[in-house]
């Protein structure tokens, strides 16, 4: 019972935080709120019996991705201004609100047929999951089923994921790894000065 109460409270916090993120315009505050959002989700993953996922989310979401976003903000903010505010948007908001409301209503209608939260007889629990839980320890000798599935049963999948991370690192290096070239405007000014 206490599980359910914590689950409901944390999920409500998450929804409120996400709405606050949308409504704010100060990007530094938004990035810090996003860190809080990730920490709350890590707590929720613990409540939903997924300690491995919570571990990763706490380290990645609240740690690394916040640092990367702050580093980006430091690069894109205007010099001499301590904060970065997004420009007031010129679009009318109602069109996107209609799109979002219609999509959301369709998705909520879709939840009517989903088995209820925590149902032990849901189709998701009765097929391959049962095989993993029964055979992971005898077949691999590893008590942590998540590690056994990650590295052994689905080793190909994980190899692909590692390749994706490696590729992303290479792409980031290619995009912003070197020293910054001078902005085009300054270069032109300099050339004109040289000619003069």
């Amino acid at each position: 019972m206490i599980d359910i109460v914590i689950d409901i409270t944390l999920l409500a916090f998450l929804a409120i935080t996400s709405v606050a993120i949308v409504r704010m315009t100060n990007l530094f505050a938004i990035v810090m709120l996003f860190g809080i959002f990730s920490l709350l989700s890590a707590g929720l993953f613990v409540v939903m019996d997924a300690p491995d996922v919570a571990f990763t989310e706490a380290a990645v979401g609240a740690g690394i991705s916040t640092v990367l976003m702050l580093a980006t903000l430091a690069l894109v903010k205007k010099p001499r201004e301590p904060f970065y505010n997004e420009a007031p948007h010129a679009h009318r908001a109602w069109l996107s609100l209609v799109v979002v409301a219609v999509t959301g209503a369709a998705l909520v209608y879709g939840t009517w047929d989903i088995p209820r939260f925590g149902d032990p007889d849901a189709p998701a629990q009765t097929h391959v999951a049962r095989y993993y839980i029964e055979n992971a320890l005898p077949e691999t000798g590893v008590p942590n089923i998540v590690t056994a599935v990650l590295a052994s049963y689905r080793g190909f999948d994980t190899l692909g994921e590692v390749a994706v991370i490696f590729t992303a690192a290479v792409a980031v290096l290619l995009l912003i790894g070197g020293r910054r070239s001078k902005p085009a405007v300054e270069k032109k000014d300099k050339r004109e000065q040289d000619e003069a």
Binding site: S96, T111, D119
Partner: peptide, 24 residues
């Protein structure tokens, strides 16, 4: 209670989608 999780998931999803399409 059995569907609350999915509804909040949808709320978060729609908040994300709204941010992507409405903010510049």
């Amino acid at each position: 209670i059995g569907h609350y999780n999915y509804w909040i998931v949808i709320v978060l999803m729609m908040v994300g989608l709204y941010t992507v399409i409405s903010r510049g």
